[in-house]
C-alpha cells in the first residue's frame, strides 16, 4: 500500500543550522496528523518540504507513492503531484485583489489545459465546483467580493474551498489557525476534520497549541531541534510528558484555557495587562 505521505531521511540546513535533520515520517491515507513544536523546532520547514515548496538537502518525499522531491531536487512530476496536495497557510495566501471565486477557481489550474487556465476560461463544471465548494465552507454569499474584504476566518475557509476545487487528497496546513480568533479557529478546524471524515482527505496540520492538537487529531508528531521526539496517539501526550519533552518552553505550547475559551460563545477579549496581551498574541 502506498502512503499518503512518506518522508525518507530528509535533511535541510540553513547555513550551518540544521532546520530538520534525518526525518522519517509515514502517514497513511485518511489519517489525521498534527505536527506540534515550539517556534524554531523545524515544523514549518518540514511542512514546506512535504509540499515541495522547499527543496531538501537530501532525502525523499513521496505523495501517494510518487516522489515530489528526491535528493535535493523537485522531480519532473512535481507539478502534477502538487495537485493532490491542498496547501493551507497561516496567512491564507489568497490573492487579495482577486475575487473569492477567482481565488477558489485557481484550484482547477492543475487540471485544465495550461492555455485555458492562464486566460481564465474555466468551464461550467469548474465554476459549479467552485460554487459548491464555497457553499460547503459556508461563504458562498461572499463569492464575488475581493478576497481582502473577508475576515481572516472566511479567508481561511476560502483557502480550504480552493483545495476542494483542486480535489486534493491530502491537505497540508502550516499553522492554519495561528492568525485567527478562537471562534474562527474552531470553525476552520471543524471544517478540516469534517473533510477528513466525509471525504477521507488526509490531514497533516502543524499547530502551535497542544490543546487543539489533542481535540482534533488522532496522531501527534512532536518536533524539537529539527527532530521528531514523539510520534504516537494524542492521548499519550500528557502535560507531564510535554514538560519532559520541552522543559520550560512547554508552557508556550500548552497555553492553558485557550481551548475552553474557544468553546464558549465568542466575546471580545479585553486585556489591560500588556504581558497577558503579549501571551495571547503569541
Amino acid at each position: 500500500m502506498s502512503y499518503a505521505l512518506s518522508i525518507d531521511g530528509i535533511t535541510k540546513a540553513y547555513g550551518t543550522v540544521r532546520a530538520v535533520s534525518e526525518i522519517n515520517l509515514r502517514i497513511a491515507p485518511g489519517e489525521r496528523v498534527a505536527l506540534i513544536g515550539a517556534s524554531g523546532s523545524g515544523k514549518s520547514t518540514l511542512i514546506r518540504l512535504s509540499s515541495g515548496l522547499l527543496t531538501a538537502d537530501s532525502g525523499e518525499v513521496k505523495v501517494f507513492g510518487d516522489a515530489i522531491q528526491s535528493g535535493g531536487k523537485l522531480t519532473r512530476d512535481a507539478r502534477r503531484i502538487r495537485r493532490r496536495i491542498g496547501l493551507i497557510f497561516q496567512k491564507f495566501n489568497l490573492v487579495n485583489r482577486l475575487s473569492v471565486t477567482t481565488n477558489v477557481l485557481v484550484g482547477a489550474l492543475g487540471r485544465v489545459s495550461p492555455l485555458r487556465g492562464t486566460f481564465g476560461f474555466y468551464c461550467r463544471a469548474d465554476r459549479d465546483a467552485a460554487y459548491s465548494a464555497l457553499e460547503q465552507v459556508g461563504i458562498e454569499k461572499h463569492a464575488h467580493k475581493r478576497a481582502e474584504a473577508l475576515s481572516g476566518g472566511q479567508q481561511q475557509r476560502a483557502a480550504i474551498a480552493r483545495t476542494l476545487v483542486q480535489r486534493a487528497r491530502i491537505v497540508i496546513a502550516d499553522e492554519p489557525i495561528a492568525s485567527l480568533d478562537p471562534k474562527s479557529a474552531r470553525r476552520v478546524m471543524d471544517l478540516l476534520s469534517e473533510l477528513n471524515r466525509t471525504q477521507g482527505i488526509t490531514l497533516l496540520v502543524s499547530l502551535h497549541q497542544v490543546d487543539y492538537a489533542r481535540a482534533y487529531f488522532d496522531r501527534i508528531v512532536a518536533m524539537r531541534g529539527g527532530e521528531i521526539v514523539f510520534d504516537g496517539p494524542a492521548a499519550k501526550l500528557t502535560p507531564d510528558f510535554l514538560t519532559e519533552l520541552y522543559g520550560a518552553s512547554a508552557e508556550e505550547l500548552i497555553l492553558p484555557g485557550q481551548f475552553e475559551a474557544a468553546q464558549a460563545p465568542h466575546t471580545p477579549m479585553r486585556m489591560e495587562n500588556p504581558a497577558e496581551l503579549a501571551r495571547a498574541l503569541n
Binding site: 509540499s51 515548496l53 507539478r79 502534477r80 503531484i81 502538487r82 495537485r83 496536495i85 491542498g86 496547501l87 497557510f89 496567512k91 491564507f92 495566501n93 489568497l94 490573492v95 487579495n96 485583489r97 482577486l98 477567482t102 485557481v106 484550484g107 482547477a108 489550474l109 492543475g110 495550461p114 487556465g117 492562464t118 483557502a159 480552493r162 483542486q166
Partner: peptide, 23 residues
C-alpha cells in the same frame, strides 16, 4: 505568500505570474 498558494495547486510558472504576481 499568494504566489506560493497558486504554486501549491499545481499551476504553471506562467499561471503563477498571471494569478499571483500581476494582480
Amino acid at each position: 505568500g499568494p504566489v506560493e498558494g497558486i504554486r501549491g495547486t499545481g499551476a504553471t510558472k506562467l499561471q503563477e505570474i498571471v494569478y499571483g504576481v500581476i494582480p
